[in-house]
């Protein structure tokens, strides 16, 4: 169940990106998951749904893009709401 610690690390990255851009909320999160990443997409989604409650990501859907024959796990793109 390391997906929870991975999502926690991702929220730190999202927080950094929000501060950099002066964002007030997140509208969408896109993550690339390689099939050899050792990460189960469904569990990652579940962990994200647990973490995002009452955060800036509360209404941001998570798009998981599967990447064949790769071990990458990358926070690829964010859509941020700025004032």
């Amino acid at each position: 169940m390391h997906e929870y610690s991975l999502v926690q690390a991702m929220f730190d990255q999202i927080g950094d990106a929000m501060r950099t851009h002066g964002a007030v909320s997140v509208r969408r999160v896109r993550v690339r998951i390689g099939t050899l990443a050792g990460v189960e997409p469904a569990l990652f989604q579940t962990a994200y749904d647990v973490f995002r409650v009452r955060t800036a990501c509360e209404s941001a859907p998570l798009d998981l893009v599967a990447v064949a024959a790769s071990d990458e796990l990358v926070l690829d793109q964010l859509e941020l709401e700025v004032p």
Partner: peptide, 13 residues
């Protein structure tokens, strides 16, 4: 009010 940000960073960075 929506900006797209390319992060492209490993989550385990």
């Amino acid at each position: 009010n929506i900006v797209s940000v390319d992060v492209h960073e490993r989550i385990l960075a």
